[in-house]
């Protein structure tokens, strides 16, 4: 089934210079293995094509049901150098939640998926 990350995750993002960080958190423990399997660094790099101009690093935090992504060269130079409206990458989190993944395993989505 095709799932948009908005249905199964929440997220927060921020900046360190020209690098954006996106913390992606599974809404339920059973969703964590799904995002761990499908939301790879490569998939995220593809999703952010044209936005993230450098590599993507991924780190796992199973204790928080979370993945942390570093999106290098995504903020137009960062800080006061950047001409971007979102120079601090605050909305990279919701951009991440647009991503869709094709999940092979059965997945129960709550009736009110986006609570």
């Amino acid at each position: 089934m095709r799932v948009q990350l908005l249905q199964i995750c929440h997220a927060r993002s921020g900046d360190k210079g020209d690098t954006g960080n996106v913390g992606l958190i599974a809404r339920k423990p059973e969703y964590y293995p799904v995002i761990k399997k499908y939301v790879t660094a490569e998939a995220v790099k593809k999703h952010f094509a044209g936005v993230c101009l450098g590599p993507v690093d991924r780190f796992e935090l199973p204790n928080l049901l979370a993945l942390n992504f570093l999106l290098h060269h995504s903020l137009g130079g960062g800080g006061t150098v950047s001409l971007m409206n979102d120079a601090q990458g605050k909305t990279l989190s919701s951009a991440m939640l647009r991503m869709e993944i094709d999940v092979a395993e059965p997945l129960s989505l709550s009736a009110r998926a986006y609570v």
């Binding site: 929440h10 360190k16 913390g23 958190i25 690093d57 935090l61 928080l64």
Partner: peptide, 11 residues
């Protein structure tokens, strides 16, 4: 959890 993930690198 959201705040813990804010602006971190290698956790």
């Amino acid at each position: 959890s959201e705040q813990l993930l804010y602006e971190i690198g290698d956790p």
